Simulated scan of single mutants.
Amino acid sequence: MFRRREPVPFAFLAEADRFRSNVTPPPRERSSVGQMAGRWLLGLTIVAALVGSLVIGMPALSLDHSSQTQQSQASRTSEGR
């Protein structure tokens, strides 16, 4: 195996951070009205789905206090017998 006698300079790595290209990218194309409307519709659909799932899921997350009071009343009437 051959060994390189001189050390490898790592200055090119530092220069890579500062490298600027002289080629400018092409300008971005403007979105059409249909594309913008589609993006708004997609965003609105996602927000509506999140709100709808929250509205539907809220009863499952809340504690049902009425069933606890009915159970306690039922246990009191059975104890009274």
Rank of each mutant, 00 (worst) to 15 (best):
V51W: 01
S75Y: 05
F2A: 11
R5I: 09
P7N: 10
T45P: 00
S78R: 15
A49V: 08
P26F: 05
L50D: 02
R81Q: 07
S66V: 13
I46D: 08
M58D: 04
G52E: 07
G57H: 04
V55I: 14
G43W: 04
A48L: 15
S53N: 12
S66E: 15
A11H: 04
R76I: 11
P9L: 08
E29T: 10
G80M: 03
R4P: 00
L61E: 03
G34W: 11
R3P: 00
A16E: 04
F12S: 12
E15H: 08
P7H: 03
G34S: 13
T45M: 14
A74W: 05
S53E: 11
R18F: 08
T77N: 14
V23L: 10
V23Q: 10
R28C: 00
G57R: 11
V55H: 10
R76M: 05
L44A: 12
L41Y: 06
T24P: 01
F10P: 01
D17H: 06
L41C: 09
Q71W: 02
F10K: 07
I46G: 11
A14I: 00
F12L: 09
V51H: 01
R39I: 07
Q71N: 07
D17Y: 09
S66R: 15
R5L: 14
W40I: 13
S66T: 15
M58L: 14
S72T: 14
R18W: 04
S32G: 07
D17S: 07
A49I: 06
A60G: 04
G38K: 02
L41T: 11
L44H: 02
W40L: 12
V51P: 01
Q35M: 10
S67G: 00
E29G: 08
V23W: 02
F2K: 05
R20F: 01
G80S: 09
Q35W: 09
N22V: 04
V51N: 03
S62Q: 11
S31Q: 14
A48S: 15
F12V: 10
S72N: 14
M1S: 00
I46T: 12
D64T: 08
V47E: 07
A60K: 05
R3E: 10
A16K: 08
M1A: 04
W40V: 14
L63M: 06
F2V: 10
L54E: 06
R5M: 12
E15R: 14
M58R: 13
G34A: 15
D17R: 12
F12A: 13
D17I: 05
A48R: 12
G43Y: 02
M1R: 01
